[in-house]
Amino acid sequence: MIAGAYALASVLVFATAALLILVGAIGVIALKNPVHSALSLIMTLFGVAIAFVAQSADFLAAVQIIVYAGAIVVLFLFVIMFLGVDRREHVHVEPLVGQRAFAAVGAAITVGGLVVLMARSHWVTGAMSVSTKGVALATGQANVKQLGTAIFTTYLFAFEATAALLVIAVVGAVLLARRERSVHDEEVEVDA
C-alpha cells in the first residue's frame, strides 16, 4: 500500500539509504576496533549521499563522497594507523556507573523530542521560498549552477570566510601535530 501511494523506485531508494545509514551508524558506535568503526562510517556517508541524490542535491552528494568518504575518513584511518591505536577498546567496562543508561535515556529524549516537534509543527507547508521566486529546485547539472549562483552571490561573504577558516585550520593542525624541537635547535634557527 505504501508502494501504491508513492513511486516504488523512491520507496526502494529511501529503504536502501535508511538501511545503509542505520547499519553504518550502529557499526560506528558498536564495533570495538576503531578501523572497523571508520569503515562503518563510510557506509553511513554513502547512505547519506544516496539520500542527497534522491532529494535532488546532486552536487552535495558528489562532495559528500569526495570530501567525507574520500578525505575525512582517510584522515581518520591515517591517524588511527599513525598512532597505532587500532587495539580493541574495552567497551564493556563502565567507569561511570549508569553512564550507558543515562546516555540511552538522553538519546531517546532527543529523538522523541525531534519526532514530536516534526509531527506537531507546521513547518512543511509546501509553500515555495520567496528567495528563489518560486523556481523549482533543479537536478543534475542545473543543480550545480543553482547552488553555485547562490554561494557566489547570496552567500559570498560566508564563502570568503570559509577560506580564512581553512587556512587557520591548516596552520593550527600543523602547529599541533608538529614535533617539539629542542631549545638548542630553535636557537640555531634564530641565529641563522
Binding site: Q55, S56, T132, V135
Partner: peptide, 11 residues
C-alpha cells in the same frame, strides 16, 4: 531544501 524548493538549505 527539497520541500521548500530553496537552494539555501543546500548552501
Amino acid at each position: 531544501s527539497r520541500t521548500l524548493s530553496d537552494v539555501g538549505g543546500q548552501a
